[in-house]
Structure formats: structure tokens, C-alpha cells
């Protein structure tokens, strides 16, 4: 019994073990996402627990035509947005266009210093990306984490945020460029 829909159906019939299996399957991706959104592991663990508690309470309203993972990430995203609102953390509106796109955009030419990719080992690069993530506007960080840490498709992200797929792609590219710039600034 590994299929998400089967686990949901079993949970709704009162099988608690089935919901425990859902928790075990999604605890890591949800903690990875929430942890990078709120910045503190302990707080992230609390929020991850809350996601599962909400999911359990709202399971009767879950519609099986949607992926369970998408639904869980949507619950988590609502919790995170709630947290930002309470903390009054500014968020960049997602409908703001990328500075420039299309073939006319000229890439930033690396100057004399070597690029970050050549300067650092992979491990060091990862640590620096993790730090640069914290400097990203929250809305862009969320999409970047979903794409790279959780491996969600653009279509899944668009479904969660209720945005066109093109807009989501554009924002992910914008997040990547901002991270690259932060890394260049550090070197």
C-alpha cells in the first residue's frame, strides 16, 4: 500500500497506520521546504507538524484528482504565508516582470576574476547557495526551493500558486539570477 490515493482512502476509513505512512513519505520534503522558508529548524519542525495535522483534519475535503504532494505543499505554503504576514516580512509580488528577457538581453560578462563556479568546491558552493537563499525575496525563494530542493515541476508549482506556467518559469529564472549575483558579490 504505497500509492498516495490508496493511503488517503485507507486513512479516511480509519486506518491510522496509513496516515503515518503519508507522514513518513512527505516529512523530509516538507521540512526541507519549510526550513528554508522560515530559517529556523525547530520552527520548521513545528510548522511541518502543523501541515500534517491540518492535512489530517481536512483530508475528507481532499480531491483525488490533485496530487497529494501538491496539496500538502499548498497547505505548507499557506502556513508560511501566514507566518510572513504575522512577522510583516515583505514579499515581492509575483506578477512583477523580470528585468529583461528574450534574446536581446546581454549576459553579464564575467570580469577578470574567475566565476564562482570555478572558485569554490561543490560543497562550499552549496553552503553559499543556502546562505544566498536567505537573502532572496520570500516569494522567489519559495519557487526556487520547490524547483531545486523539492524537484517540483513548473506545472505543479503553477497549480499550487494559481499562476500561469510561464510566469512561474520566469520567476524561477529571476531567483537563479539573483542567487548568482549574490554569490558574485561575495567573491
Amino acid at each position: 500500500m504505497n500509492d498516495d490515493q490508496e493511503l488517503v482512502a485507507a486513512t479516511l476509513k480509519g486506518n491510522r497506520k496509513a496516515f503515518e505512512m503519508i507522514i513518513r513519505k512527505y516529512q523530509q520534503p516538507l521540512l526541507n521546504y519549510i526550513g528554508r522558508m522560515v530559517g529556523e529548524r525547530e520552527l520548521a519542525l513545528d510548522f511541518t507538524q502543523d501541515v500534517f495535522l491540518r492535512a489530517y483534519a481536512c483530508l475528507p475535503s481532499y480531491r483525488p484528482q490533485f496530487k497529494l504532494s501538491t496539496w500538502l505543499f499548498k497547505i505548507a505554503s499557506n502556513l508560511v504565508i501566514d507566518f510572513w504576514r504575522k512577522k510583516k516580512i515583505p514579499t515581492l509580488p509575483l506578477d512583477q516582470p523580470l528585468e529583461e528577457d528574450g534574446d536581446g538581453f546581454c549576459l553579464q560578462i564575467p570580469d577578470d576574476k574567475p566565476s564562482v563556479a570555478k572558485t569554490f568546491e561543490l560543497g562550499e558552493l552549496r553552503a553559499r547557495i543556502d546562505r544566498a537563499l536567505a537573502r532572496l525575496p520570500a516569494a522567489l525563494r519559495e519557487l526556487f526551493v520547490w524547483r531545486h530542493v523539492n524537484g517540483l515541476s513548473y506545472e505543479e508549482m503553477a497549480e499550487i500558486k494559481g499562476l500561469p506556467v510561464g510566469t512561474v518559469k520566469n520567476k524561477v529564472f529571476q531567483a537563479k539570477e539573483l542567487i548568482r549575483r549574490h554569490l558574485e558579490e561575495e567573491t
Binding site: R16, F19, E20, I23, R24, Q27, Q28, L31, N32, G35, R41, A44, L45, T48, Q49, F52, L53, V116, A117, L122, L125, R126, I129, D130, F144, H148, V149, G151, K176, I179, R180, L183
Partner: peptide
């Protein structure tokens, strides 16, 4: 950068996390 970003380390989940939620 894409490769590095896609292999960021997992945050540690406590061993008894699922039991705690249940």
C-alpha cells in the same frame, strides 16, 4: 549552480517525528 542547488543537504528530521505527529 543548478547542480549545486539541486543537491542541497536535507534538514534532519527527528527519528520519532511521525510518532510525535500521530
Amino acid at each position: 549552480l543548478d547542480q549545486a542547488a539541486s543537491s542541497l543537504p536535507d534538514l534532519e528530521v527527528p527519528a520519532d517525528f511521525a510518532e510525535t505527529v500521530m
